[in-house]
Nucleic acid binder design. Sequence first.
DNA 1: TGATTGGTTAGCCATAAAGCTAACTATACA
DNA 2: TGTATAGTTAGCTTTATGGCTAACCAATCA
Lengths: 128, 128
Amino acid sequence: MANQSSRLDQVFAALADPTRRAIVMRLCAGEASVGELADPFDMALPSFMKHIHVLETSGLVQSEKSGRVRTCRLSPDALLGAEDWFQQQRAIWEARLDRFEAYVMKLKKEKEQAAAKRPSRTTKKKGS
Amino acid sequence: MANQSSRLDQVFAALADPTRRAIVMRLCAGEASVGELADPFDMALPSFMKHIHVLETSGLVQSEKSGRVRTCRLSPDALLGAEDWFQQQRAIWEARLDRFEAYVMKLKKEKEQAAAKRPSRTTKKKGS
DNA sequence: TGATTGGTTAGCCATAAAGCTAACTATACA
DNA sequence: TGTATAGTTAGCTTTATGGCTAACCAATCA
């Protein structure tokens, strides 16, 4: 029934295509008509329009038509939303690295203390 | 012939699926076996393994098998690569905003100067 | 008014994606 | 040695994606 697919799903899916990434990059530099956007691509217009539509339903791009020309512009919110996702993951990842480092330091310290007590067992496993 | 699809394509495509994002999030907290990863999902193992494989060919995840259990870990490089892409776009976008702001300021200044010369035309268009 | 331009709709096709079941391999445990 | 566990392979189905052509509006321009 439902086309249950989150905003992030749509944004990442939109950005998974090189044509669409190129469009986004182009629009970062300023708004443009469909024709201008399509020009560099060796692709039939209807195919190209599908990409525009994907970008639009993902929320990355907005457009409006005046006269017979449709002007597209970037809507940076969706882009920032996706960027946030990365930063959250990185925060978790880095926290984990910190914990890992703390763990390694603890191991190291224990090992040093053990070595201080029994100075001859430094390289051996199974000392018990 | 060639399966010409860039690393960024693959990373974004991998992240476009909520199951795979969840796996990445889980792996941010530390490595895990396929079984542990699959547990929260109501999905047959072969289907789940496909997701792992997608993540692996995208470079986001690495895994190795010891005995009969395969352990997966995040490889943060690909994640950082994608994050970079956003930051580059944002840099372009912000530079453009700066230029736009400069342009608006210039317009404003010109308008003020025009108003100083002909004080009664402030709201009208087509003054020529 | 008639032709051009800019975009849109409709519909087709090939391939890829995401899920399933069934059957199999190989390690580990009893 | 036999059984349970952890993945894996093979093969099937349904739906989504990315491309095309052909035909069709609706503004502009001559």
